[in-house]
Amino acid sequence: MSYHETEHMPNLNRNIQTLALLAAVLLVGSNAFVLSPILSEVADGLATDPFRIAWAISAFGAATMVSALTFSGLIDRLPAGRVLGGAALLLALAQVSSGLSQGWLWLCLSQALAGVAVGILLPGTYATAASTASEGREAARLGLVLTGWALSLVLAVPLAAVVTEWLGWRAVYMLLALLSVPVSLGLILALPDTPGTTTTRTPPWRAVRLPGVALLLVVMFAYMTAFYGSFAFFGEGMRNAFGLSAQGTGLFVLAYGLGFGLAGIGLGLVAPKITRGYILLVLFGIAGSYGCWRFALVDPRAAFAGAAIWGILNQLGLNALVVSLNRRAAAARGAVMGLNSAVTYSAVFAGPIIMGPVYAGAGFTAVSGLAAMFVLVGAAFSWKVV
């Protein structure tokens, strides 16, 4: 998959493409994040226990992982607009089904369908963001697109709570579906209508054998395990440290989202050159930010600043690793980004399981300390491949 022939594309077209891809990530992040804060309301509405509703999150993650391994290579062979637009429409269908759920199993199946769509949409978006960028501008383009994650945290999560309070939880999914349709049309219209550079499917076992890909995926797994393992207990850590309400802990999540988003905008302006030294510096910075939480938890202002710095560094780290994987993917960008999504959602599962006993026994500072060790292991592996 290569669209670098768009080097002389007018800036307006580039900007429209970037907005469409950012909207796709916002869509994915919104669907991924909205269920957690309204878990109890959904459980009450379906007359079941919250833990059964939480299984819908697991179903979404598992289906995303399988779909990414199975279908992400479509972006290498078919027009990007059709693949991503079709995936967004499938996500809209899953969201309508979620909103119409009459039981927890129906909701789980609906979110599994959403996972199938996201397993195509997310890796395809990453691959397309890199392949349609000008030479040397991949990090800048991807930084702006990744800002969709921050927007989903800052906007979608609090809005979901407000909509649930006033209109009920079903309205949340209906509104997401209404958002998915114009995003789908935007992707179809904005992205190139030319097929990828290969007509054959690149299976995962072949993509993982591309030079440097396997080791970079190990780095990504260590990096994401540290993040998702820490983020799972971040809110509780802030609440216990400062005696906050759920609304109060949301301010620290907001700080993280703002840091992540501002860093993405900065990357769009600066366009750093991704080198071995750059990646090592960022990974060491992230490890340091995890290690400093034991000092930040003495004062809310320090913790707020620490959350924002954590968000900034995580944007830089994720951006650098995804750009590095894309560079090694050649004509198999979709397949490699599918492997990346599969690894990421494996870390979504593994992180909280690994960190749970640590948090129960020693609290959030111990969790962040172990996360720092995971990132340092990832840095050691990155030295060999970057």
Rank of each mutant, 00 (worst) to 15 (best):
P211L: 02
M9V: 06
S98Y: 01
W383R: 13
R301H: 12
R206K: 15
Y256C: 04
G351D: 11
L318N: 13
V253S: 11
V116M: 03
A139V: 06
F231Y: 14
A24N: 09
L167T: 02
V208F: 02
A366N: 06
C292A: 15
T18D: 08
P10K: 10
W166E: 13
Q17H: 08
V322C: 00
L151W: 13
A308R: 10
G259R: 10
L251V: 12
V282A: 09
A329N: 08
F71T: 05
T64Y: 12
V25M: 13
G124Q: 08
R14Y: 11
S97Q: 04
M1E: 09
A246P: 00
A59I: 02
L12Q: 12
L281R: 15
A68Q: 00
W383A: 11
S245L: 07
A140E: 00
V96R: 05
T198M: 07
F242D: 04
G261A: 14
V25R: 03
G311I: 09
R201Y: 07
A150N: 07
A68T: 05
T128K: 06
T225K: 07
V25W: 03
A139M: 09
F33E: 03
S341M: 15
F51K: 14
P123Y: 05
L107D: 02
A87V: 04
G235K: 05
V42R: 12
P50A: 07
E165D: 13
R52S: 01
G369C: 01
G356T: 03
K384M: 06
F304R: 11
R137K: 14
Q95T: 02
Y173L: 05
G334Q: 09
G317N: 06
G148K: 07
A23H: 01
A133S: 13
L35K: 02
G311V: 10
G264R: 13
L370S: 01
S152W: 11
P203Y: 12
S40N: 11
A380W: 08
V386A: 12
A88Q: 02
L179S: 00
A330L: 13
F221K: 02
R333S: 11
A308G: 13
T344H: 03
R206E: 15
A127T: 08
S184L: 09
A330G: 14
G45K: 09
S58T: 15
A287C: 07
F71E: 04
L191P: 01
M9C: 08
T164V: 04
